[in-house]
């Protein structure tokens, strides 16, 4: 138990020493918010059902951070540790096999949460961000979405053989996904056809769920989305468990 706690702490320190990962999780979404927020402002517009641009974008940016953590940071961290032999070295210690993954997941979750907190704090301070939804429900939706995408990231790391492949596949999935799902730009700006096609992307459903919770829609109105994300999480976990390798 002490080992897991220590490993988690060390991994948190190592995350902070990796400027690129910290930038994309913590700084990049804030830059997006500041740039687009200052262009479009946060005045209520009919397009966003009476909310402003920033109100409508924050759940999407949250989804963006979640996708960054899961598909880019987590997958390359795990695949990298396997490729370098870090996992191999830890494997001969009494540390429980799952502890390495758990530590990574905890650190990624903490960083994702901090990234989300920064967004909300800056959104409120500068753009008078509105959040009519239930905060506890939003938190549950956030955790649920994280678990789904972290499982996806670990499945990716397990399925590929090298860190380069993990990075390539992660990015190939990540970039179309953040633009088409409505994470990086509000989906109202996309053509209808694209919006419909984006339904195959798991991140689209994360955006749908987080936006719905953010503006206070009943979660029971989105059982289909929740079911879909649960299926993605379950399938990813199954792939990760079946194909995870120490070397």
């Amino acid at each position: 138990m002490r080992g897991i706690a220590k490993l988690t702490w060390v991994e948190a320190k190592l995350f902070c020493r990796e400027p690129l990962a910290a930038f994309f999780t913590l700084v990049f979404p804030v830059i997006l918010l500041l740039v687009f927020g200052s262009i479009f402002g946060n005045a209520p517009v009919p397009d966003y059902e009476g909310f402003g641009f920033v109100d409508a974008s924050i759940p999407g940016y949250a989804a963006l951070i979640i996708a960054t953590s899961g598909l880019l940071s987590l997958s390359t961290a795990v695949a990298g540790y396997r490729e370098q032999g870090v996992l191999r070295r830890l494997h001969v210690t009494p540390l429980h096999p799952g502890a390495v993954l758990l530590a990574q997941i905890v650190v990624m979750f903490a960083m994702t949460t901090i990234g989300m907190g920064l967004l909300v704090a800056i959104g409120r301070a500068i753009f008078a961000l509105k959040c009519p939804g239930s905060v506890p429900l939003i938190c549950v939706g956030f955790v649920f979405s994280c678990l789904c995408f972290f499982a996806l990231g670990i499945a990716l790391a397990s399925a590929v053989s090298s860190v380069r492949t993990a990075q390539a596949v992660g990015m190939a999935v990540f970039y179309p996904m953040i633009f088409l799902s409505g994470a990086a730009i509000p989906r109202e700006l996309l053509p209808d056809g694209v919006q419909r096609a984006a339904a195959v992307l798991p991140l689209t459903h994360v955006v749908t769920l987080l936006r719905a919770l953010w503006i206070g829609e009943a979660w029971t109105a989105h059982l289909g989305v929740i079911g879909l994300l649960t299926a993605v999480a379950a399938a990813s976990s199954a792939i990760a468990v079946r194909s995870f390798r120490w070397e």
Partner: peptide, 26 residues
């Protein structure tokens, strides 16, 4: 105790942190 031919530690972990970490496993 095991020293493996093809193993590594995290690139940015400081030496003392590595020993401190591994000590916590035992």
């Amino acid at each position: 105790g095991v020293q493996l031919q093809s193993a590594a530690l995290q690139e940015r972990i400081k030496l003392w942190e590595a020993l401190d970490l591994f000590a916590s496993f035992y």
